[in-house]
Simulated assay, not measured.
Amino acid sequence: MAQEQVDDLNIESQTLLITPRELKAKLPLTDSARNTVAAGRNAVRDILDHKDHRLFVVIGPCSIHDVKAAHEYADRLKALADEVSDTLLLVLRVYFEKPRTTVGWKGLINDPYMNDTFKIEDGLHIARQLLVDMAEKGLPTATEALDPITPQYLQDLITWSAIGARTTESQTHREMSSGLSSPVGFKNGTDGSLEVAINAMLSVRSQHRFLGIDIDGKTAITVTRGNPYGHVVLRGGGGKPNYDSVSVALAEQALEKAKVSTNIMVDCSHANSNKDPALQTLVLENITNQILEGNRSIVGLMVESNLRHGNQSIPADLSQLEYGVSVTDGCIGWDDTEQSLRTMAERLRHVLPQRMAAQD
């Protein structure tokens, strides 16, 4: 009597992937890249520890789909970063993975050629090479830690990591974050709830044991030390923003009550801009005013910015893609980016050192 198959009923195929060790050997960390990562992480940690008066600003395209455009954006951002470095620490947003509500393009790692060929190994090579290039330019980078396997391939090049609103509640992502080498920001829930982020912050600082992969790609029991640099990211939710002074004050109270870090980062996009990229500059202005009026909890910002304003759908003919325009969420263009950050730096240049002195 033939045995009925009970295993892998819905698996069409599996392909072995390059191991993290092999990828790192092909695209190693140069000394200059290593120095950029270490300096960037130390600077963010010092800001979170209130040893550095600056704000850190994670800024860049919603997602990376064009390496050439990413380099052009990075070159412009590096010049601006040097100009405002006494007030703002600019961290380049380099998002390779996109969570989807239903279906859609899942990012450069999953589908680097944007044609449903899903050449994931190529995507990992392209992503790691770009991160090495950015670090060699002297730009610290930030990304969203979405797939729990990916950090073994890329985390050594990341200054700051985000856990998105869809995954902040996930035990897998909380455990993974407890072992990340970078500081990590947890976004509030898509409904605006802060509780999921607070629970994540309580979890991430603790030791965890879970299944993961090691540098040779083997399944391993991973034991973490806990990550002391978890903090909240306010991104709005439930159709409402939560960056205003009242929402920030309520967040401070909730964080204090839970006895977790009261450091607050504000995401100028998503529900905080009502998904209108142009409104991000108004959020930046509002945060600047809150700090001028005495706020002490806001230490960081996130902005979705690209060479050109807006976004576009991915066309069937990829030659029709508009250069420098996002293919996911809409972004502000470079001119608005430059003007907004310069204005913020000018207005806060003499206030932030006084704020830190008052906290001491």
Rank of each mutant, 00 (worst) to 15 (best):
D46T: 10
I59T: 06
N115E: 06
C268N: 10
I158W: 03
D336L: 12
P20M: 08
L194W: 05
D116Y: 15
L80A: 07
K78H: 12
Q5P: 13
G107Q: 09
S85R: 11
R205W: 11
R205G: 07
P61D: 11
K259H: 04
L279A: 03
S340N: 02
E175V: 15
L108T: 01
V94C: 06
I163C: 02
G237R: 00
G164F: 09
T15R: 13
V351D: 09
L89W: 03
V260Y: 00
L211Q: 12
L341Q: 04
A38W: 08
G230C: 10
G40R: 08
S170L: 11
L282V: 07
L194Q: 10
V196N: 11
V67N: 13
L88E: 06
S177F: 15
V58H: 10
L92Y: 04
H270Y: 01
L341A: 03
C268G: 05
S182W: 04
V327N: 07
E285W: 08
A70C: 14
Q354M: 12
E136C: 06
Q3A: 12
L90E: 02
N263M: 01
A127V: 06
A278R: 14
L321Q: 11
L92E: 02
E256I: 05
V232I: 06
D116P: 09
H71A: 13
L157H: 14
A254L: 11
M265K: 03
L341P: 00
S193Y: 05
A251W: 02
G238H: 01
Q14Y: 13
K240T: 01
S305A: 01
N272S: 03
E12M: 09
S326K: 00
P112D: 12
N289K: 08
A127G: 09
E97S: 05
G300S: 10
K137T: 04
N306E: 07
K187L: 07
A358M: 14
D66R: 11
D276P: 02
P353F: 13
R76A: 10
G237K: 00
T219G: 15
T150E: 06
S193T: 00
L139H: 04
L234G: 00
E175C: 15
D276W: 00
A79H: 13
P315L: 02
S269R: 01
Y95Q: 09
S319R: 13
I213T: 08
S206L: 13
A25Q: 14
V94K: 02
G164Y: 05
L307F: 01
Y73A: 05
T15F: 12
R100M: 04
T190V: 14
T159Y: 05
V233W: 00
V184A: 11
L194A: 05
